[in-house]
């Protein structure tokens, strides 16, 4: 079975936010919520890099581990989805997620959280595939239509890849080899400095 993965190629991402716009439009995302966002580190400085990030559909998802009402489930394709009929808007998944994927539309005063909303890998939710209710609650179910997430499909530089993890990593591996002369490996060990 395929395991769906996102991969963003930092050498290609040009911070155009096309993926964000595509996602918001395709999934009819509520105002104020971005299921996907682009982060730029060292903006304006030499060697700045951008990454488009959304829910990474973790294997051992922290959101699912802390949810008090157990509303998360992983599909056969390894996509982490949640049931908005169960969600109580407690905010725990937001505390646990390293990527800031879960967000809450503010429905009432005092910042009371509504039902959590996050990237669905364009796979909708637990409701019948491509039904009107599913679209209104979770957005488009492109996976059921045999299509991949629109953010990746729309990416102008093909920086954002989405799909079966093995295929995606194979494409990325070929890219790295083709680029040549750019050994990304130098300096990598300093991410985890040597023990003294």
């Amino acid at each position: 079975m395929a395991r769906m993965k996102f991969l963003c190629d930092t050498e290609r991402c040009i911070e155009c936010n096309g993926c964000v716009t595509a996602c918001n439009n395709e999934n009819n995302v509520p105002w104020g919520i971005n299921r996907r966002h682009v982060v730029t580190l060292g903006d304006g400085r030499r060697g700045e890099k951008s990454v488009s990030v959304a829910c990474m559909h973790c294997t051992d998802a922290p959101c699912a581990a802390v949810c008090p009402v157990d509303c998360f489930y992983t599909t056969e394709d390894g996509i982490v989805l949640h049931d908005k009929d169960l969600c109580i808007g407690c905010g725990y998944c937001f505390y646990a997620c390293p990527f800031g994927a879960p967000q809450y539309p503010q429905q009432e005063a005092f910042g009371v959280r509504g039902k959590m909303d996050k990237c669905t890998f364009c796979a909708g939710g637990p409701l019948p595939d491509n039904s009107k209710e599913e679209f209104l609650k979770y957005g488009r179910n492109r996976i059921a239509e045999g299509k991949l997430p629109l953010c990746a499909e729309m990416c102008a530089t093909k920086a954002l890849l989405a799909g079966d993890g093995t295929v995606v990593s194979e494409i990325y591996r070929k890219r790295v080899m083709k680029r040549g002369g750019r050994p990304d490996a130098l300096g990598w060990q300093t991410a985890y400095p040597a023990e003294k």
Binding site: V38, T40, L41, L186, G187, A191
Partner: peptide
């Protein structure tokens, strides 16, 4: 290697810029 620097910054939770206000 600024590529390695980038991922090190990510690993250390360095704040960047984004258009998202969340």
């Amino acid at each position: 290697n600024r590529r390695a620097d980038f991922w090190r910054g990510v690993r250390e939770g360095e704040a960047g810029t984004t258009t998202s206000a969340s």
